[in-house]
Every structure is written in C-alpha cells, then in structure tokens.
Simulated assay, not measured.
Amino acid sequence: MRTSDPTGLHRVLDEQVVLPQAAQRLDTRKELWSDEVRIRVERLNLDAASFRQLEQKHRTKDGPDGDAVRHEVLDIVATRGKMQNPETGSGGMLVGTVEEVGPESPLGLRPGDHVATLVSLTLTPLVIEDGLERWDGTSEQVPADGYAILFGRSIAAVIPDDLDPALSLAVMDVCGAPALTERIVRTYDAPVVAVIGGAGKSGSLSLAAAKHAGARRTIGVVPFEEERKLLADAGVADEVVIADARDPIALRDAVASAGGPADVTVVCVDVPGCEGGAILATAEGGTVIFFSMATSFPAAALGAEGLAADVTMLVGNGYTPGHAAYALELLRADAGVRSLFERRL
C-alpha cells in the first residue's frame, strides 16, 4: 500500500507525479489511509463556469438538455474519479455526512458531522452511486448519493443548524471571495469598490464584505435590467449599473458614471473576456481581484502591460482563514444578500 501524503498524492493514478488537482485520474477506493476522512455525499454544487459550459454544450432548439448534462457529469466522475470539467478545469464542492475518520486525521471531524467541503471537487476522490437520478441536469445544485474522500490537508466546515443545508452549500461554495475582498478593502482608506457580477453569489457577498470593511462607495455591475433591479431592490450596493463586462470601454464608463474608477475591482462573472474592462475600471495603484474560473491570466497580465496600468492583480484562490464563518455571518446580517441567495435555490 502506498504511503499516505496529506496532499492526497497517494491517490493519484497518473504515471507522472502531480498533485490531485492536476491529475487525470484519482484512486477512489473506499478504504481509508490513516489521515483521511470519508464523506457520504448528499449534494454536489457545480461551480458556475463549469455548469454554464455544460449547459451551453448540450443546448438544443428547445433549451438545455438536462439528461445530456447529467450523463456527462456521470461520465466525468466515472472516468476521472473526481468532478473536474475537462473544458473549464473547474469542479465545485459538496455537502455530506462524515462516515469514517482515519485515526491520524487532523481535520477535527467526527462520524455523523454534517459538513460542507471547502476544497474543490477537482481534487476530491468521488464516487456517485445513484446515477444522479434525482437531478434533472438544469441546476448547479445536484442531489446525489455516493462517497468522497478528504485528505490531511483538505478543509471542511460543519454546517450550522440555523440554515438550510442547500443555502449553506451555496454560500460556502463562494466563501473565499468575500473573505479576500474584506482583507484587501481594509488595506485602503475608504475605497471605492466595484464588483463585476454583483447580483451573483460571490458578487453579492463581496459587495456586502466591501461595505462591512469600510468601503466609501460600492458599485455593482450587472449585464441586464432584470439583475439591476434585483440588486437594487436588495440594497446590497450603493450604485448598480448595467454593462457588458466583455466590452472594456462600456465597463470602464459604467463604473466611472457611478463614482469610479474603483480602487478595488472584484471580478465575479463566469464568462471569458472581462480582463481588459476590469483593468480599465480600476484606478492607478488599485487592485483587481479575479474570482472567476473563466479568467485568462495571460490576457490579464498582457492587457495590464499594454494599457500601462499600474494595478495589482490577484488570483482569488478560494481559501482565506475563517472564510466560511465570515461568509455565513454576512448572509445572516444582510437580508438583501440572503434574499438573492434564496431566490437562486
């Protein structure tokens, strides 16, 4: 038996030595190494970029083909031993109940704990045992039965009793965005903060985090009038503007019209081509946080260079200490944010 490694390296089946996230296939055996935890899966949450790609790939003249989406997800998991969309490279997260804990696990979990994993499905060994029969393939949240394995360096949070598990899952799926936004906003003196994709899950939480951290002005950018009205009615942003984030001039001008340029710009949209507009919408010396799996980091780096833009660009890696608890606090404290989340469920 291979020696356990806290990164999960012992479950990689590739010939080349790579970490589980980069692996083509993972070992999904049910038996645990001493520092692992096995979770009985109840629900998956596919990340927005992955679900959008699958939905568009299997769209017919009558709309998305949910059966085809479901079958592709099953095929990905069966083939790779994890849920990692081969086109977007992204996955999501899950909710479940702890079944078994290895004697050397450092995660502090106990059998029976109801948890959400805070690591990506792209590196989590996963087996689906019910054929996803309760999922119609038309939503990001996927009722499921099966099991998943956590490593010594994985992260999971016990789900609070006062929130619906589906709501907790939706929040924890994006909890890295508000935590990092809060950290960066606090490094400025009352900054202007623009959030592109402000009506979405990570976007609305990031707006709330910016306000909580002392932003002088928050600007939510959305693509359509319907989302503008939703975000405005929720009262999460000081200003809400409509712009196609893929149009750099339109995005720059929309943010400027609402009190920009922004000192901090947070990109929370799941479509490619938003890098240039985010850079143009940001003031000299400002910071752009990319929290989208659709981001092209070469485009961002070369775009900033070509625009002679003195901005700091950060990759939101999804983990900041205390991020889950902080996101849940924001949800509880802000009725507007909660209304936006509940509308999505």
Results as ranks from 00 to 15, higher is better:
S90V: 12
R217Y: 01
L331R: 03
P111C: 06
E36D: 13
R332I: 00
A254S: 12
Q53Y: 03
L44W: 14
A156E: 02
A281P: 04
A327F: 12
L121S: 14
E227M: 15
V73C: 06
L251A: 07
F51G: 00
A179N: 06
M83L: 15
I149G: 13
E284Q: 14
G197V: 14
L123V: 08
L330C: 08
V171I: 11
P160V: 01
G203K: 02
P165C: 05
Y326R: 10
S292Y: 11
H212A: 12
G112E: 11
G81D: 10
L302W: 05
A308M: 10
R153I: 01
D27I: 06
I242L: 04
P143W: 09
E227L: 11
A157H: 10
R59S: 10
E31R: 09
A210Q: 01
K57M: 04
L9M: 14
T97N: 01
V37R: 01
G146D: 11
D62V: 12
L74D: 05
D263T: 04
D67C: 04
Y319Q: 15
V255K: 00
L44T: 04
V221W: 04
A325G: 08
T122V: 15
P321M: 02
V73T: 01
E342G: 15
S204E: 12
G214E: 03
D35G: 10
G316A: 12
S204K: 12
T28G: 04
A256H: 09
I279S: 02
I149S: 02
V315F: 12
R52Q: 10
K30M: 07
E104N: 12
L123N: 07
R344T: 14
M1Q: 05
A210I: 06
T97F: 03
S90I: 10
R29V: 01
I196H: 13
E225L: 05
V174D: 05
G336M: 03
G102V: 02
Q16F: 13
A23L: 15
E275R: 07
R80D: 13
I39S: 09
A299W: 04
E140P: 07
